[in-house]
Design a protein around this nucleic acid. Structure first.
Length: 259
DNA sequence: ATGGTCGGTCTCCGA
């Protein structure tokens, strides 16, 4: 089973690049972030025509996540538990009904800049809520995978120029500590383990020729539960997507789990 | 030295 994450930075803007990548990469399941669309405006028919079921959790203008799946889905849940007042669409999960079911959690973790400030407070609080959800899922001993744009650079090796990020919310010690806490609960950073850096990135800014200079960072992650990690067969980053026509600033990251 | 580029609408803000 091939599971992927892709921050597309706008579903309308990726009307050509996303189907092209789907046709070439053929993931069974892909978690999308920053669809920047309400549910009613998501072009679900375009993806149903390619054989995907479509579950969205959108909002107007910003954020928004979705799951596309060739396999049946059940227990679809929208929104990260733990704060009923949180209106930002950043979390969607569902169980993929394959031979051995896998719960897929798609997430768009808050950026948190500028830090310090209320946006950074929201990021850290969101990570605490995510940790609580991860603890629940671990207690259930399900096979699960949390894929998405974490907006966290785990270590210096995960940035071309780590010194440029020292005061940024993506690399501040508290952000990295919260990420590490989830790893230390027993989640495996699939790319971090199977493709140790340096030089392994998933995001290149549109500005200042970051792509041409390979000034990238690794912030899109696939975190596997112990049971899912035991099934980890292969991982990859589809870096070529960044060099295509009208690209997102992120590229797809994927894992293959044994059936 | 401190620019610059996207996306979606909010003709500015978020990244």
């Amino acid at each position: 089973m091939k599971l992927a994450t892709f921050n597309i930075n706008g579903i309308k803007a990726r009307a050509e690049a996303l189907p092209a990548w789907l046709a070439q990469a053929a993931p069974d399941v892909v978690c999308l972030q920053e669809i920047k669309s309400v549910d009613e405006a998501f072009p679900r028919g375009d993806f149903e025509a390619l054989g995907y079921r479509v579950e969205t959790h959108g909002q107007k203008g910003f954020n928004g996540v979705a799951i596309l799946s060739k396999l049946p889905l059940s227990d679809v849940r929208r929104g990260l538990p733990g704060d009923d007042a949180d209106e930002q669409a950043r979390w969607i999960e569902a169980v993929v009904d394959a031979g051995r079911p896998v719960r897929v959690c798609g997430l768009y973790l808050p950026n948190g800049n500028p830090a310090p400030g209320p946006k950074y407070d929201y990021k850290l609080a969101w990570m605490t809520r995510m940790e609580a959800r991860v603890r629940e899922l671990l207690a259930g001993e399900e096979h699960f995978v949390c894929l998405g744009d974490y907006n966290v650079i785990p270590q210096g090796v995960d940035a071309a120029k780590p010194e440029a990020w020292v005061t940024d919310a993506l690399f501040l010690p508290a952000s990295r500590e919260a990420f590490r806490r989830m790893a230390n609960l027993g989640l495996t950073d699939a790319v971090g383990v199977r493709m140790p850096g340096p030089g392994v990135y998933t995001f290149w800014d549109y500005q200042a020729g970051a792509w041409e200079r390979n000034n990238g960072i690794r912030i899109d992650h696939v975190m596997c539960s112990p049971q899912a990690a035991d099934r980890l067969e292969d991982v990859g980053i589809d870096k070529a997507a960044r060099g295509g026509e009208k690209p997102s600033d992120h590229v797809p990251v994927w894992v293959r789990l044994v059936a």
